[in-house]
Amino acid sequence: MTAYLIATLALVAISTIAGLALNLQWGLGGLVNFGLFGFVMLGAYTCGLLNVAGWPPLLAMAAAILVTGLASATVSLISIRLSDDYLAIVSLGFAESLRLFISYEEWLTRGTLGVPGIMRPFAGWVPPSAADAVFLAFAVVCLAIVYTVFEILARSPFGRTLRATREDPMVAEALGKNVLWLRLRAFGLGGAALGIAGSLHAFNYTYIDPTQFGPVITAYAFMAVIIGGRGSNTGVLLAGFTVVLLLEGSRFLIDAFGLLDGAQLAALRLFLVGVALVTILIFKPNGFVREYRLISPTKERS
């Protein structure tokens, strides 16, 4: 039971990091990233392959963060001049292409066989019985760092300007803000966080293959952001640890439901994710936690 709880919590921490990344890109910046799973995959494979090639885990992770961040920024360049609809399909196109590439370029990625034997950080220093708990602690520390950095960013002038470009890029442009450069940085920074999520994914399973990465990862992240409230990092954190925990926990129910087999239960869970996305958008479009707003002192006095 404890082992199950630790494993689930690690997954929730990884999903929540992806949610925070999406919150920076979409919540604050209005940049729709439907290809989120592709960037997580890129992070996982960069980290996993470098690690298997002999790099120490933390160094491989740092490389994955860098690669994913740069790749995100580059992909966003394709359509950053155009409206958000285009970035959505471009990021999705990148993700699908990457998945094909990784599935078939066996010389590099071992294709569908997957990459086994990825070493977790600190694996040599702790007894094997405590390995999962140590990994969970590491994932939570990563989550805390991402949360803190993104929260500082959201309250900084950068975050404020980013919100302005989300509301009306034309006005921001007229006020002399470089919208393109801002968006590029937001998408790249979000991508770096997705690199962290991907690396943790690789460490968590110690084995990666292309089937682990799909649109479901994107859907979970969108759900966390929509339920938590667009723009609110705290909201994403809370949503991650309630809704994603419930969904992941529902894997447990396979034994309880004698009527449904595993595939049907998986379909049911994804169906509920889809319905929840739409329902929250209709009935609670701003989510449950308000985004941070700078309240000017003059306003407070009056």
Partner: peptide, 10 residues
């Protein structure tokens, strides 16, 4: 757009 991806999933 985001609603439609929810619809797609469902």
């Amino acid at each position: 757009l985001v609603a439609s991806i929810g619809v797609a999933l469902a």
